[in-house]
Write a protein that binds this DNA or RNA. Structure first.
Lengths: 247, 247
DNA sequence: CGGGTCGTTGACCGTGATCAAGTAACGTGG
DNA sequence: CCACGTTACTTGATCACGGTCAACGACCCG
């Protein structure tokens, strides 16, 4: 399967192009990343904590989440993944998976061997560097999450998650305004933000009461986006990128 | 200044060699990373949140921490850095720093331009890949921190931090047993674990009362290491590495 | 109609935050 | 050598946010 810009741009290449113009050769080197496809049903695991770690996965469609369980059975969600994301990079030098990767809804992923990165480094060093840069960006997002969990109230954590999602989803859909689909249930949201489903429910109700957001079965709308941004001092990192030094 | 294995192995090369045997050529390509030195006094910032992000820093000696401040002036420490670590990778594609890098005690760092990575990729792709792998490992450690903060008690968070430090420090000093120097004050520990200095103090006292650890002005000893490991289900990721695919 | 998932709401409780006072260790200058 | 100031740590009293438990309601799909 060849990928041409006109016909069906791959979401991975399309996400990378959001950040950096890629040459035809670079695009071709990346085409291999989506040679194979695998469908995963909602709730199904692509891999689980402890599995051997030797593959990467490009998300083609759907939403996924990375999670781990504590001794006592508590779940912690550490990351959400959307179309165009590359999953599995964290375990690059680990023998076994540090987390499970689960489909939040029916999804399609493209598996590839970890060692493809070595080839890519030779064939398209600039693209390889960008991929590393995006992994580093994910790292920074995790800083944000740590800070939100450790230092802010339940209400503010919810706002943080919603704002982060809004800006992430805009990368795939530039036309998006302030309404987006949120296919996560409240237990999952709580497990990501260090809250219980009960607190998530109460916080959502409170945010609606304040007029910051509104909800309509699975979609969320920011009614007062600026106020939300200011309230938690949110900085959209996607607006603050510099990839020029990669040239 | 040339670096020879016999005389004075650089701590960066020495840390990388802990994970992967490097060739002479690869060692030479990495020597550039420590061409320049800069001393920083305790409490001094190497860079601050918002500064331009175009340099990297190899830690030569001392301890550093990465932190950020919330709107309301609360500090969140997101990472500790020790000799041999490479700092600044997170902001690879960001224009401005996502966090401040502060010296925890008098330290020496080696600044280098971000663009050195491009050269390294050509000259020593394997080393470049290992560096990316170690950045990915840091990412996983942050998963651990998120989980500790979001889902465990104050006492358990302290145990987590102490165990993680113990294993990290063993990389620089293979002879280390269960005693190590802890130059962090309790406010800083609290700011890392999402606690106050008061709670940190009380938790330390409790852990001593339980006989798990003992303290002696700036040093900590695990009296019951196995019990501590089991109590929080701690996994030492440094024992679980696979760099063979880099060959 | 029935079962399951998901969200809502209320009562109560517990961990850690906050506030405050006191102590210990250490460096500086007289 | 001691007086003093600073920083770090300890301990106790009180408070509040979010957890826990439980009941109920909305919605969906068979």
């Amino acid at each position: 399967m060849t990928i041409t810009k006109q016909k069906q741009p791959s979401c991975f290449v399309s996400k990378l192009t959001f950040f950096l113009d890629l040459s035809v050769e670079e695009g071709e080197a990346l085409a291999d990343f989506e040679k194979n496809e695998r469908a995963v049903a909602r709730g199904e695991a692509i891999y689980r904590e402890g599995d051997a770690a030797d593959e990467l996965f490009v998300v083609k469609s759907g939403w996924l989440y990375s999670s781990r369980y504590t001794d006592s059975g508590q779940r912690q969600v550490v990351q959400l993944r959307h179309p165009g994301d590359l999953c599995g990079m964290h375990d690059l030098i680990l023998t076994s998976r540090s987390h499970s990767l689960i489909a939040l809804e029916d999804s399609v992923v493209c598996p590839l061997p970890q060692s493809s990165l070595k080839d890519l480094m030779r064939a398209a060093p600039r693209a390889m560097m960008l991929i590393n840069g995006l992994a580093a960006l994910d790292h920074v997002f995790l800083f944000d999450l740590v800070q939100a969990i450790a230092r802010t109230s339940a209400d503010d954590r919810i706002i943080y998650l919603l704002l982060q999602l809004l800006h992430r989803l805009r990368i795939n859909n530039a036309a998006m305004d302030t309404t987006f689909r949120l296919p996560m249930n409240q237990t999952l949201i709580g497990d990501m933000l260090g809250l219980t489903n009960v607190t998530v429910s109460k916080s959502f109700t409170e945010l609606e009461r304040l007029g910051l957001i509104s909800r309509d079965r699975g979609t969320v709308t920011f009614l007062e986006l600026d106020e939300a941004v200011e309230r938690i001092d949110f900085r959209n990192k996607f607006d603050n990128l510099d990839v020029q030094w990669l040239q």
